[in-house]
């Protein structure tokens, strides 16, 4: 474990917590893409499938973190699609998730480290995570604005994988560790946030709201 991965995981936890708090406190999921949250839930379940297969006692923080990610993302989907369904902005959350899932699944079958079920699921989860934020960014571009709290969520969510890139550079240099698939997907994922990062740094930090040119 290095400082970059530690802060990356903390940033990821913060993002999940910020979103849950936003929905729970405002009792509304306006401005939140349910599809992106569904995709994240799928990512966690397919990536941490080993938790279900050979359940080992929660002997380390990693197992606990995996369970937190899975349960928090499923609970977030429950809030969006059931509890606060009336506030779900289905009209604007209109990006076809199939256009993200099918290519990720196909690519996972073509480009992977080992052609076995667990590895294919892990690879699918990595590819899907890289594009899972697209419905959320698409929704913001459709509505033309993002609530400040949602911007903080997106900043934490984008920072997590950006910090992982620093972690991979660190591990390449000090541990000769290379996980090419995770690195390439992580770079693509972070690039998708660049536009938002620019808006966040120039606007939200100054206390303004993000309003996209309609």
């Amino acid at each position: 474990m290095n400082i970059f991965r530690l802060f990356g995981d903390l940033s990821h936890l913060a993002a999940i917590a910020i979103l849950l708090l936003k929905i729970w406190k405002t009792r509304s999921c306006a401005g939140v893409s349910g599809k992106t949250q569904l995709l994240f839930a799928v990512c966690f379940i397919t990536r941490y499938i080993d938790l279900f297969l050979h359940f080992v006692s929660l002997y380390n923080t990693e197992k606990v973190m995996k369970l937190i990610y899975i349960s928090a993302s499923v609970f977030t989907c429950y809030l969006i699609f059931f509890k606060f369904k009336a506030t779900y902005d289905g009209n604007h959350d209109s990006m076809r998730a199939e256009f993200l899932i099918v290519p990720a699944a196909g690519l996972a079958c073509l480009i992977n480290t080992k052609f076995d079920a667990i590895e294919i699921l892990w690879t699918f989860s990595i590819y899907l995570e890289a594009v899972a934020i697209l419905p959320q960014l698409f929704l913001i571009s459709k509505t033309g604005e993002a609530e400040t709290i949602t911007s903080h969520y997106l900043f934490a969510q984008g920072s997590y994988r950006a910090l992982y890139i620093l972690n991979w550079i660190y591990r390449y240099h000090y541990e000769s560790h290379v996980d090419t698939i995770a690195i390439v997907a992580g770079v693509v994922q972070t690039i998708l946030y660049c536009d938002f990062f620019y808006l966040y740094i120039t606007k939200v930090v100054k206390g303004q709201k993000i309003v996209l040119p309609a």
């Binding site: 991965r5 995981d9 990821h12 990693e62 973190m65 995996k66 990610y69 480290t113 080992k114 590895e119 892990w122 992982y164 972690n167 390449y172 541990e175 000769s176 560790h177 290379v178 996980d179 090419t180 995770a182």
Partner: peptide, 10 residues
């Protein structure tokens, strides 16, 4: 460089 098969990151 060592390519990982098991994945030790979240």
């Amino acid at each position: 460089k060592r390519i990982l098969t098991h994945h030790d990151e979240l």
